[in-house]
Amino acid sequence: MEQSIALPPLPTAAELPDSDDTAVDNELQNLIPNLLLAILAAIWSDRQDWYFGVDMGIYYLPTAPRKSIVPDGFLSLGVERRRQPSGRLSYLLWEENWTPPILVVEVVSQTYGGEYDIKLSKYLDLGVLYYVIYNPDYWQRDNHAPFEVYQRVDDEFILQSQERFWIPELQLGIGVDLGTYKGWEREWLFWFDRAGSRFPSPDERIEQAQQQAQQAQKALEDLLHLLKQRGIDPDSL
């Protein structure tokens, strides 16, 4: 008779570090994925089946449950949007029904972090479908394009795009464009719709709302002026 050997229980998120405690080289490594998250939170506000993590540890090996990898940003589909009551401490595959991220984003900095080799191999093992590497400052040093998207094809990552890239599973494109975020006008990573129009940043949404309010106020003032010109008292209407 075969006897099964009981494996020790896998640790919970509360028992594991939520990141690798490695400081980022520059603020863009935090701002860029947070912008992608902020835009998703607006355009997918009615969806509860996705999660975007920023600088969060992903634990994916049951044989080495305390080993993690920490992307700058990652997106998972088919998981709970919110974990009550306090949210996620980290992303444990065994607590997410073994759902790996569909997309990972890495921002290359002055200290090279193995984005094109070590991390690429790890994300392949993890089961990631799309791997985005944004390298605006050191792409010549690394002999790569500033923006690259790799897609998992037959158990290997194949470079698909060095420009804007459409992801059918998300019904969104991802790419680079000029914009303003946190009051900083520069090149950022953005989400795009099917027609190629990019979704606005929070700063830009506020500016658009202000412009619409000003236009509405101007239209109202013009209407009141027209009524008065015709001898009509607006208060009598």
Rank of each mutant, 00 (worst) to 15 (best):
M1R: 11
E2V: 13
Q3N: 10
A6L: 13
L10T: 09
T12F: 04
E15N: 05
E15S: 14
L16I: 02
P17A: 08
D18P: 12
D21T: 03
T22G: 01
A23D: 06
N30W: 12
L36D: 05
S45D: 11
D49G: 06
F52R: 01
F52Q: 01
I58K: 03
Y60N: 10
L61T: 09
P65I: 07
L75Y: 03
G78M: 06
R81F: 12
R81N: 10
G87R: 09
G87Y: 09
R88E: 04
Y91G: 02
P101C: 11
V104R: 05
V107P: 01
V108F: 00
Y112Q: 11
Y112F: 13
G113V: 00
G114Y: 05
Y116V: 08
I118E: 15
K122I: 15
G127S: 06
Y131R: 10
I133P: 04
Y138N: 12
D142Y: 05
A145I: 01
V149C: 13
V149S: 10
Q151W: 02
V153N: 03
S161R: 11
F165N: 05
P168Q: 06
E169L: 14
L170V: 07
L172R: 06
G175M: 11
V176E: 15
V176N: 05
D177F: 01
L178W: 11
L178F: 08
Y181A: 02
G183I: 12
R186L: 02
W188Y: 09
W188P: 01
D193G: 04
R194E: 15
F199R: 03
I206V: 15
Q217N: 11
A219N: 11
D235I: 04
S236A: 13
L237T: 04
L237A: 09
L237R: 13
